[in-house]
């Protein structure tokens, strides 16, 4: 797939992630967007790697399932699919919600282990996530750490368990009336 510029990346129509590749609209799953290294629209690289690391610590497989691409893409649309929509946060406030909390999560990782989220061992990542669930520390800024934990965990569950594959992987029948276009 051709390398894309940020300018080429447009908001989702709500069915997968719609990207422009060489002037042609292409529908990608978050997983495909991750594999294709589609540029991010809202999150910085550090925020994105922090989100991927935290999501993976909470729900193994979330990073490869395209958690970062899903969240970043849905922060740029009017009628978002993010669970945050149900939790009393305005659409316009959602980018700031994630950015500020991810910066805090990155800082909390530094405070705990003097390293970046990407370099954490599995045990450290688990402890980091658990500490965020418990309120992190006084340097935390943005939404309450425990609430942010819940939201990222829910986002990660959406991309891992929300598809036919993810549902059937835990032994539950998917039983779609209308089969979702990739991936949901």
């Amino acid at each position: 797939m051709n390398k894309l510029s940020r300018r080429d990346f447009i908001a989702s129509t709500g069915i997968g992630l719609t990207c422009w590749v060489s002037g042609v609209g292409v529908l990608l799953s978050p997983q495909q967007a991750q594999a294709a290294a589609i540029p991010l629209e809202t999150l910085t690289d550090t925020q994105a790697t922090t989100l991927g690391a935290l999501g993976n610590a909470l729900v193994p497989g979330a990073r490869n399932a395209g958690l970062v691409q899903y969240v970043d893409n849905q922060l740029g649309v009017d009628n978002t699919l993010l669970i945050l929509k149900y939790l009393g946060v305005d659409n316009a406030a959602m980018p700031g919600f994630y950015r500020t909390a991810l910066d805090s999560a990155y800082g909390h990782c530094q405070n705990l282990f003097q390293t970046t989220p990407l370099k954490l061992t599995a045990a450290q990542a688990h402890r980091w996530a658990g500490s965020i669930a418990g309120g992190a520390d006084s340097s935390w800024r943005g939404p309450p750490a425990g609430f942010f934990f819940f939201v990222v965990r829910a986002d990660a569950c959406d991309v891992v368990f929300g598809s036919r594959q993810g549902t059937e992987d835990i032994g539950a029948p998917f039983m779609a009336h209308i089969e979702p276009t990739e991936p949901w």
């Binding site: 709500g14 978002t80 699919l81 669970i83 929300g162 209308i178 089969e179 979702p180 276009t181």
Partner: peptide, 8 residues
């Protein structure tokens, strides 16, 4: 579509 995400 049958999806918890699309339901939103």
């Amino acid at each position: 579509t049958s999806s918890q995400l699309f339901a939103r």
